[in-house]
Simulated scan of single mutants.
Amino acid sequence: MSLALTPAMRDALSDWLAGLRALDGAAQATVAAYSADVTGFLSFLAGHWGEAPAPRRLAELRQTDLRAWMAHERGRGICARTLARELSALKSFWRWIAEREGFDATVVLSARNPRFQPKLPRPLTEEAAREVLTIVGLQHETRWIAARDVAVVTLLYGCGLRISEALSLRHADAPLPEVLRIRGKGGKERLVPVLPVARKAVDDYLQLCPLVFSPEDALFRGARGGPLNARLIAKVMEQTRMQLGLPATATPHALRHSFATHLLTAGGDLRAIQELLGHASLSTTQVYTGVDSARLLDVYERTHPRR
C-alpha cells in the first residue's frame, strides 16, 4: 500500500503518527491501526484518482470520493463497526493535515459514521467471578506462579484494571497502597482504590516468588524471570473457564467488565465508575447500563408468574 504514497505523503503520515505517539500518548497498537487505516484510504484514493495524491491535493476531496471509498470497503466485506473505526482514523489524520496544509477539512469531518449495534460487554456473574478467583490458583503446580496468577486476576476484577495496566506495575509499586495511581490508555492517569484482598494477593505472590527484583523490574514475572506475558494469563483463564463450564467470553478483560457491571448493579454511580475505569467519555461507560438492563429483562422473563 505504501507504494501508492508520494514521498511527501509518506513524510506527512510519519509526522502525524509521531505526534500521536508523543503528544497524544497513543498506544503502539492504536498507532499501527491508524497507520494501516489511513494508508489504506490513501491507496484507494490513488487508484480512484489515477495517481497518488500529494498532501496539498487532499483539499480536492469531495463527498463523492468519500462515498466511493465507503462503498469499496463494504464491497470487500468490511463491517460497519470496522468502517466506523477506519473513518475515525481518517478524521484524525484529516484534521491534522488540513491544519498543516491550510485547507478546509469539513468534507471528512462532517462524514457520518455508519450505524451499527454496539456489542454489550459480557461480564461474569458474581458467583462465577468468585469461582474464577479460586480455581485460577489451582492451574499451576508451582506455588509462586499460582499465587502470581491469582494476584493478577484479583487486580483485574477487584480494581477493574486492564491486563496491560496490571502487567505494567513495577516492583517499586509494592506493597500496593490503598489507592493506586494507574496510567491507562492515552497516558491518562487515574486513582484506583485497592481492596485489601488484592493487596494480600500481591503480598502472597511476592513472599513466594524466588526471583530477585530491582525497583524498576516488572512486578509480575514469568517463570524464566522476564516480564509476565499477557498470553499466559489468557491461557490460565481459558483453563479455568473450561473447568467451570464458562463461555469463551470469560477472558481476562471480562473480569474488568464484571468489575464495572457488579458495581453498577450494587448501586454504584456511573460517573464514579467512569473514573475508576479510566474512560475518557461517559458514553463508553454507559454500555454497562445496557448490560444491567438486559440482565434484569432476562430475570423478568424467566421468573415472572405471568410469563
Rank of each mutant, 00 (worst) to 15 (best):
A250W: 10
L109I: 05
F259E: 09
C159I: 00
R307D: 13
Y205W: 00
A248Y: 14
L109W: 03
S168G: 04
R85G: 08
L45F: 07
R76L: 10
A68I: 13
V153K: 05
A254E: 06
Y288D: 00
R256E: 05
E126F: 06
L282I: 15
S214I: 01
L156D: 00
L61D: 00
A280G: 02
M1H: 05
L211D: 02
Y288V: 04
S43D: 10
L124M: 11
V197L: 09
L155I: 04
H253F: 15
D11F: 09
G268F: 02
I145S: 03
R95P: 12
W16K: 12
D149N: 12
G268S: 06
R256F: 04
S283M: 07
L296C: 07
G50E: 08
T125H: 14
E127F: 11
A223L: 11
G222L: 00
T64M: 10
F103N: 01
A234C: 00
W94C: 06
G245N: 05
Q28M: 10
N113K: 11
T125E: 14
G222V: 01
A230Q: 11
L161S: 14
L120P: 09
T285L: 03
Q274R: 10
T240E: 00
L133M: 13
L176T: 09
D24S: 14
G290K: 03
A68D: 13
I163Q: 00
L13W: 05
E101K: 02
A272C: 13
A218I: 03
A248N: 13
R112A: 12
A254H: 00
A111E: 13
E126S: 10
L180K: 00
W96R: 01
A12H: 06
R221S: 04
P196K: 07
A71M: 13
K119G: 07
W49M: 00
A52Q: 06
A266M: 05
T82S: 15
